[in-house]
């Protein structure tokens, strides 16, 4: 259920502007990898290259290789839609489908991909909601609109929706930045549980969060505004936050820069 990701010399562009340059790193299965760095350093862009969501933006393109186990996601004959089925994503702002009920939101990935068996769907809904620690809060109102939940519940609903399709990898783009501390804690606890089953990559601005939840941390930065972002270093979280190899990483995590 969980695979290793290796990025080799990934470059991403928005039109003619290069957003990230030469990123190479490995993401270990069944672990949480956090990506930190100042705004505009390309960590979100890099995350979106991992499930080929970057290219959805008009004019955006990616160069380089992203290997899921040994398969290049950007190789010839690879369908971006199929890649996204394998790699789930949770976004910065909770974005449940406003026209769907809680149940339909969770089931949407399966149902819209052609699974119609009600029993299979119901089981997947319960399993995913339990997996997202939301089942007890919503089990009596599965038919109500997903948009009626609180922000933290909505975000866990989005996590349930993402894991319902049983992806290999779960990408999280600042999943707690729109949430209060208690909801944030709930999601962080959830991540610790989910890493038993999925490879998790999380982008965060919150260094305490990265220190709390991740096993490995990658630090992104950019030379100057307008320059592409680069991966400065990636190592175990403990090493990055106690004894980083690079001066710039130390400056950033001690608050002297960024």
């Amino acid at each position: 259920m969980s695979k290793r990701i290796v990025a080799e010399d990934v470059n991403a562009y928005y039109g003619s502007a290069q957003a990230i340059a030469g990123v190479s790193l490995a993401i270990e299965p069944k672990s949480v990898t956090a990506l930190i760095g100042p705004s505009g350093c390309g960590k979100s862009t890099f995350l979106r290259t991992l499930n080929r969501l970057h290219e959805v933006i008009p004019g955006a393109r990616v160069e380089g290789k992203v290997l899921l186990d040994s398969e290049d996601l950007y190789g010839p004959g690879i369908d971006a839609v199929a890649v996204r089925r394998t790699i789930g994503m949770v976004f910065q702002r909770p974005n449940p489908f406003p026209t769907m009920s809680i149940r339909d939101n969770v089931a949407s990935g399966l149902r819209l991909n052609g699974i119609k068996n009600k029993q299979v769907l119901d089981e997947a809904v319960e399993r995913s909601l339990r997996g997202a620690n939301l089942w007890n809060e919503v089990k009596d109102r599965l038919g109500k609109p997903g948009a009626g939940l609180s922000g933290g519940q909505q975000q866990r609903l989005c996590i349930a929706r993402a894991i319902a399709v049983e992806p290999q990898v779960l990408l999280m783009d600042e999943p707690c930045s729109a949430l209060d501390p208690i909801s944030t804690l709930a999601i962080e606890d959830l991540m610790t549980e989910l890493k038993e089953r999925f490879t998790i990559v999380i982008v965060t601005h919150n260094m305490q969060q990265a220190a709390r939840v991740s096993d490995r941390t990658g630090f992104f930065s950019l030379e100057a505004t307008g320059e592409p972002g680069r991966l400065i270093e990636i190592d175990t979280t403990e090493k990055i936050f106690s004894n980083p190899s690079e001066k710039r990483t130390e400056d950033y995590i001690t608050g002297r820069f960024g």
């Binding site: 499930n51 969501l53 959805v56 839609v81 199929a82 890649v83 996204r84 089925r85 394998t86 789930g88 994503m89 976004f91 974005n95 449940p96 489908f97 949407s108 990935g109 819209l112 991909n113 989005c158 929706r161 993402a162 399709v165």
Partner: peptide, 9 residues
């Protein structure tokens, strides 16, 4: 839209 794309639709 992105949420939907990310689900593989």
């Amino acid at each position: 839209r992105e949420a939907s794309y990310a689900l593989g639709l």
